[in-house]
Write a protein that binds this DNA or RNA. Structure first.
Lengths: 186, 186
DNA sequence: GAGTATATGGTACGACTGTTTCACTAACGA
DNA sequence: TCGTTAGTGAAACAGTCGTACCATATACTC
């Protein structure tokens, strides 16, 4: 008995909070401005999530969930040459629409280097793409459980993303990826 | 006339502040703990640097200066095969002693993505290694002002650094670099 | 209606932040 | 000794932070 709980409200808040964090970043996140932007109050944020730390954890989980969904929609296009697949992945991840995700990705990584205790599963977040990526580049792998090829491919992608986000030089980074694709093809 | 200024004090403070930032990171930097660790006071930090923002700028400049010196000491070893040179660079940059620099590097990049206005020269910080790196890998470059090869090499190094710092998996990242060296050799 | 559990507003607490102000001392030239 | 400039400690200011407390409103069962 009593007033029935409304879990949808928490979900709605979580979705909007994730939008907000993707737009504004994690570093300066503060409950009061966040609440104001979400038409709610710090009081309600703590009521729904317990603490700021738990709210952030929920937001990061939601962001990762969204990214995984988007990736799953995109990646199965494992047809074509190695070059085409690589270019497809790069075009997708480096597109402007993905910029907020990429930004948050780098932000979480950097914060995790200073406070590893807050991100117990950061290692997984890096390596869990290997399953899908390994499948995508099976023909250039050295074996069925080759982890080196996905590692290298992801390193190139992340490194070029790093470069692109810092310099904005799309032409140079695009060409560097093409060059890597050529090398990979042999 | 009057008491003579003592610029050495500011230099000493800057050096120790840089040590502190390299050890503790930029994100949570606060004047009072910093001053306490440096046996000085927030009052003096502001007296010497004007504001926290200028202090941070000075610290970052100092850190970059140190990194450049260390790199200049190391890089001229441009002898040997492409593989050996690449391995040498990777061994140097991924060594544990460089970890604080690498951490700060990622931290500044991430913060720069959220607040680009604070880092007007971030693009340069990424590309200014190309001069030296381009010279080092001249024999695998496509031309005298080939920017693509240095871009790719740095992307691999940064991407693998990203992986290594997040997962701590040295074996896998080392092998990925070896694989890249093989590809580069053709 | 009473009883009860959820939802919410308002407010204040204690701890921090960068910075400022005021007073004072230290070290020099004349 | 006096004037002048550099250096420095202590305290306060105005603000923000996450969070806790207290009241009250809302929506349900009985």
């Amino acid at each position: 008995m009593g007033r029935p709980a409304d879990p949808a409200r928490r979900e709605r808040t979580l979705a909007r909070a994730t939008d907000y964090v993707l737009a504004h970043g994690l570093a300066g996140l503060s409950l009061r401005p966040l609440a104001a932007a979400l038409d709610t109050s710090p009081r309600m944020l703590l009521y729904d999530f317990g603490s700021k730390q738990e709210l952030v954890a929920a937001v990061l989980a939601e962001a990762r969930r969204r990214g995984a969904v988007r990736l799953a929609e995109r990646l199965p296009v494992a047809t074509g040459s190695v070059q085409e697949r690589l270019r497809g992945i790069w075009a997708w991840i480096s597109a402007d629409e993905r910029a907020p995700f990429v930004r948050l990705f780098f932000e979480v990584h950097a914060d995790g280097l200073v406070h590893p205790e807050n991100y117990p599963d950061q290692g997984e977040a890096i390596t869990d793409w290997f399953g899908t990526l390994g499948a995508t580049f099976r023909d250039v792998s050295t074996g069925p459980d080759d982890t080196v090829t996905p590692t290298l491919v992801m390193a190139v992608v992340r490194g070029l993303l790093f470069d692109l986000t810092a310099t904005g030089d799309r032409h140079r980074t695009d060409r560097a990826l093409d060059r890597f694709a050529e090398l990979l093809k042999q």
